[in-house]
């Protein structure tokens, strides 16, 4: 039996020792926003935050997360209000097919928490573990830089952009 807190809700789950955290989220908790793709930690589609740190959930065993707190893409927006990054991704046209986007948003969320005012080079470095086959990197980088602008204006975590200011 393991206990994890996912997006603020606690769960007690019986899992096989060989279950990955990615499988736990997707198959047991139905949180399919976290995507499975390369299973090697190369593509970043499964990026989540564990105890506030970004990780590839395909490389973490569910049992390792016992007692820990996890944030997935489903936990980023609150009450249907997009957070500043999600809003900026849409505003800047950074979303195409969408498959990599949850991972990109989570990696960007971690980046902005570590470095609230990144340069374009910082963003490129911070997101280079998240592949986008649509090749929307330019727009994704723009979005992260724009979200940073927004967060400077509004400190509320889910604040920016909804008022339609931009």
């Amino acid at each position: 039996m393991i206990r994890v807190t996912v997006n603020g809700s606690s769960h007690a789950l019986d899992v096989m020792d060989s279950t990955t955290l990615l499988d736990l989220l997707r198959d047991r908790l139905g949180l399919t926003g976290t995507k499975e793709c390369c299973d090697l930690g190369e593509c970043g589609a499964c990026t989540i935050l564990v105890e506030g740190r970004s990780v590839n959930s395909c490389l973490v065993l569910a049992a390792e997360a016992n007692g820990q707190s996890i944030t997935t893409i489903e936990g980023v927006a609150s009450d249907g209000r997009l957070n500043r990054l999600q809003d900026a991704f849409l505003e800047k046209g950074a979303v195409q097919c969408g498959f990599c986007i949850p991972g990109q948003v989570m990696a960007a969320e971690y980046l902005l928490r570590q470095n609230p005012h990144p340069s374009a080079a910082d963003v490129k470095e911070g997101l280079c573990g998240n592949l986008c086959r649509c090749g929307a990197y330019e727009q994704i980088i723009e979005a992260v830089l724009a979200a940073n602008q927004t967060s400077r204006e509004s400190l509320s975590p889910s604040g920016g952009g909804q008022g339609g200011g931009r």
């Binding site: 970043g44 990780v55 590839n56």
Partner: peptide
């Protein structure tokens, strides 16, 4: 070494 996600682990 890898991406930031990797270096966090």
């Amino acid at each position: 070494v890898g991406s930031i996600q990797i270096r966090n682990r």
